[in-house]
């Protein structure tokens, strides 16, 4: 039985399914342990008294990083499509997608 709030094997299976990763039982056990340790480490923050501390959105205290709305040359299409495993009609050909875009 997992500790309350601790990452479970089911959580890892769910996240793997979302990413379309097929994990074996052994891999699920391995990653559940590893990921739980990472999250335990991160959750140490929860033991601190953070009342009055504003949430941090970025590691650096920087805002409004912007660029002008000017066109810059992109990549050559043949070069781009040359990297793809499958191409048809100048488009990336991908496996059939069940359902519609989210």
């Amino acid at each position: 039985m997992a500790e309350p709030g601790r990452l479970t094997r089911e959580d890892v299976a769910h996240v793997a399914a979302l990413a379309r990763l097929h994990l074996s039982d052994a891999e699920l056990d391995l990653f559940t342990g590893q990921l739980a340790e990472v999250l335990d480490h991160a959750s140490d923050v929860a033991s601190l008294d953070l009342a009055g501390v504003a949430p941090t959105a970025h590691a650096m205290a920087v805002t409004n990083v912007l660029r002008p709305d000017e066109v810059r040359p992109g990549l050559d299409r043949d070069e781009v499509l040359g990297q793809a495993p499958s191409v048809e009609d100048h488009r990336f050909r991908v496996p059939r997608i069940p359902g519609e875009a989210p």
Partner: peptide, 8 residues
């Protein structure tokens, strides 16, 4: 449909 084509 058998496959999809993508234009980015």
């Amino acid at each position: 449909s058998d496959y999809s084509l993508v234009d980015y």
